[in-house]
């Protein structure tokens, strides 16, 4: 799953917001991993899977496939286009391939043009409904949001404590933890149950406090180089931070350098991962 082989769209990014109006930007979609199941009887009921909303001046090269192998296409209305593919209704959604196809397509598109990503699982009864009910009533709102996102991309930063290092910190900072550690030493689990529970609880609380502090430090340290920062929920008990960050394209290097500084400072205790650029999943908000 590399991002280095980005689809090479024939037309580059239009510079600035005014450029968004000039036609001719093409988005080439990479083949998604989902097997092609389109060779099924046409008699089956189909619907329209919606990935996201793009500016209307975009072309999609129809060579990629989307969720469940459906062919990617655009539904246009005014200055908007919805990225969709056909979907058989009889097939349940949510297999790993489906999820990956959804994000991969959006991330590929986002590398070229602004996009408002939908949450996974948005399905309408047909392309006409997409234009009439999704695009038309919210045209200006979506158009303004796309203008805001022009030239910006989302990154996710995941920070994870190195277990030995963080445990040493906790033992050094919490005498009771160090004492309990001595107490359970050499004892089987059932002979030291209460002490182990208490010890684990102290460690867990201590790591939570560290996570709060380190998350704040990272968010505050990256914020000057970003458009916005969202603090995500941890996904592991040893997470040190989990952030989504919206970055201006021209400030991407400066953002990555700021992150590298943290990587250096934290090398002994925290491992950092940078994921992206990707579509701005965390920075589109459903108003109503």
């Amino acid at each position: 799953m590399t991002g280095s082989t980005r689809a090479s769209a024939p037309a580059g990014r239009a510079g600035g917001k005014s450029g968004a109006k000039t036609a001719g930007r093409r988005v080439q979609t990479r083949r998604a991993g989902a097997p092609d199941r389109s060779a099924t009887p046409a008699a089956q009921a189909t619907a329209c899977y919606v990935y996201g909303v793009l500016p209307g001046d975009v072309e999609v090269t129809p060579e990629g496939s989307g969720v469940a192998g459906g062919e990617i296409r655009l539904v246009r209305h005014g200055e908007l286009a919805a990225l969709v593919s056909e979907l058989r209704l009889s097939r349940p959604l949510g297999r790993p391939d489906d999820l990956i196809a959804h994000q991969r397509l959006l991330d590929d598109v986002a590398a070229e043009v602004p996009v408002l990503p939908m949450r996974f699982g948005a399905v309408l009864d047909g392309t006409e409904s997409v234009a009439r009910e999704l695009l038309a009533p919210h045209h200006d709102e979506f158009r303004a949001a796309l203008d805001d996102l022009e030239g910006r991309a989302q990154f996710v930063v995941k920070a994870r404590y190195r277990e030995d290092a963080v445990l040493r910190e906790v033992l050094a900072e919490h005498p009771e933890a160090a004492r309990l550690r001595e107490q359970i030493r050499g004892l089987p689990e059932d002979a030291s149950w209460d002490a182990r529970i208490r010890l684990g609880e102290i460690i867990n609380q201590a790591i939570e406090a560290k996570r709060d502090a380190d998350t704040r430090a990272l968010a505050e340290g990256l914020a000057p180089h970003a458009v916005a920062v969202v603090i995500r929920e941890p996904t592991h008990e040893e997470d040190a931070a989990h952030l989504a960050i919206l970055v201006d394209d021209e400030r991407r290097q400066e953002f990555e350098e700021a992150l590298e500084d943290f990587g250096r400072d934290w090398a002994e205790r925290i491992t950092l991962r940078l994921i992206g650029p990707q579509a701005p999943y965390d920075f589109v908000v459903t108003g109503r």
């Binding site: 919606v50 996201g52 909303v53 949450r119 995500r232 989504a244 999943y281 459903t286």
Partner: peptide
């Protein structure tokens, strides 16, 4: 983590 509870809700 990214696409199940983020993004516009149709």
């Amino acid at each position: 983590d990214t696409i199940l509870d983020k993004g516009l809700v149709i």
